[in-house]
Amino acid sequence: MEIRIEQASLHWQQHCVFTDLNLTLPAGQWTSILGQSGVGKSSLLQLLCGIADDADIRGRIQCSDGLPLEGRVAWMAQQDLLLPWLSLRDNVLLAARLTQSRSASTEQRELALYLLQQVGLGERADALPAQLSGGQRQRVALARTLFQDKPLVCMDEPFSALDAINRLKLQDLAAELLADRTVLMITHDPLEALRLSNRILVLQGSPASLSAPLLPAGATPRPVSDPQVLQQQAQLLTLLAETVT
C-alpha cells in the first residue's frame, strides 16, 4: 500500500517550520528522512501515527487503497516505552491486551513468543523489562511493533539511544524482520539511513523542504565498510552541515 502526504504544513509558535510539503511512501519500501532537530520531522511522523496533539500540523493523508490510514500504523519511538509492570511477553502482546476485552488467544501468545525468539529473547519471555539492558529492551519494542502487523511502520530515531555496536546489531535485525514492509524512519544518522533505506530524503531549510530522494543501491542491511555507503555518508554529512550556520 502506497501512502501519500499532501500539502503538509507545520507551525510552531507562529513560526512556519514547513509548508506545502509532499511526501510519498512507496509500498514495500524503506524510506528515511534525515534532518536536524527542530526541522519538524518527528511531527511529520506523529501526523501519520495520529498522535500529533502538541504540534500545529496539518496535512492530507491518502492511501492507495482509498481507506483512511487511521489505525493502520505501528509506531516505534526512541524510547522503548515498555511498560515496567508487564512481562516481555505481555509487552509484545500489548496491542491485543489494550483492544480486546478477553485475554490474548493461544495463537497470539505463540506469536508473541515466536517474535521474542526472533529478536533473541525467547527464553526471557517472563522477565520484567527492568531486568534487561537498553539494547535488549529496544529489541522487545521491535517485537511489539512486529506483533501489530500494520501496513505502515513508523520509526522515530529508533536506535539513537543505543551504543554503536548495539545500534548496528539492531539495524541488522530490523532490516531482516521488516524486509518488504512499508517503513518510514526518522533519523539524524546518515549511516543508519544508508544501511537500511531504499530511499533517503533530507528535510532542511527554513521553511524546510524535502530534497530529491537519494536511492542507495544494493540489498539492505548494507555493510558499514561498503565504499558506496561511506562515500554517500560523506555526501549526506556535507549536505546536512550546510544548513548549520
Binding site: 509506531w75 509492570w85 496491542a95 489494550l98 501489530q148
Partner: peptide
Amino acid sequence: PTGYLQLARTLGANRRAQLLQIRLPAAL
C-alpha cells in the same frame, strides 16, 4: 509518561483501556 499514552493510542486503546491498563498501573 506521555510516551505510554501515545503508544497506547497508536495501539488503538480507547480511553477506558488507557485508564485501566496504562494510567492506573503507572500510578501505583
